[in-house]
């Protein structure tokens, strides 16, 4: 592993080797980015096994399309986009995206001080996993990947207003769930402290 890492000191070198179809470079890329890219897949697909399968397909796509990467922008960003597309394709083919248009409008979000939120990334991943697929997909695309509503609407085949309303509902639900999780963690720590005393 150390040897492999030494071989590819710079990203440009790694990309060059990948473009030549070097299996060592492929292995190196996988070792370096698989965990991060699997996390991207899990954000869209709640099932870890299925997400792993999609990640494998995503890596295959990366190796196939490596010639298309011209060094403009970050390589990781390019890979993330490919992985996101792969996850969306999976959701589309499996018809997992259920956009709940008829759901009641989310209430006005109360002011919540996110700075106080003391939740770990794993907890947040679990919370996102609880969102309905439509909310989760739109929230991921908009809040984390940074797509615009127009782009999301085009990707998912929905209107821009639907994308906006899905995002609004997702935010409201997330806030609620984070609050609940915070309260739960607070009470648990209190109980643990009392028991310690």
């Amino acid at each position: 592993m150390v040897k492999i890492l030494q071989l590819f000191t710079s990203e440009a070198q790694l990309v060059k080797s990948l473009q030549k179809g070097d299996t060592k470079a492929q292995r190196h890329l996988y070792e370096k980015y698989s965990a991060r890219l699997l996390a991207v897949c899990v954000r869209y697909i709640n099932d870890k096994m299925e997400a792993e399968d999609v990640m494998i397909e995503g890596f295959m796509r990366i190796f196939e399309k490596i010639d298309q990467f011209k060094g403009e922008g970050s390589f990781e960003g390019w890979m993330r986009r490919l992985m996101t597309n792969e996850a969306l394709m999976y959701l589309r083919t499996k018809r997992h995206i259920e956009i709940d248009i008829d759901a009641p409008e989310a209430q006005q979000l109360s002011n919540y001080d996110w700075a106080d939120a003391n939740l770990e990334a794993d907890d947040l991943m679990a919370i996102i996993g609880k969102l309905p697929t439509g909310y989760r997909t739109v929230f991921n695309l908009y809040a984390i990947e940074g797509f615009s509503h127009a782009e999301i609407a085009e990707q998912l085949g929905i209107t821009e207003s639907t994308s906006k309303s899905q995002l609004h509902r997702a935010r409201a639900l997330l806030q609620e769930m984070v609050k609940e999780a915070e309260n739960l963690s607070r009470t648990t720590t209190e109980v643990v402290n009392r028991l310690k005393k």
């Binding site: 699997l38 991943m125 996102i128 929230f139 806030q175």
Partner: peptide, 18 residues
């Protein structure tokens, strides 16, 4: 949006080992 910001910051570097 603060919600988006909070989640984006926390989740961008998340790693799940396959």
């Amino acid at each position: 949006h603060p919600t988006d910001k909070f989640f984006a910051e926390k989740l961008k570097e998340v790693e799940i080992k396959p």
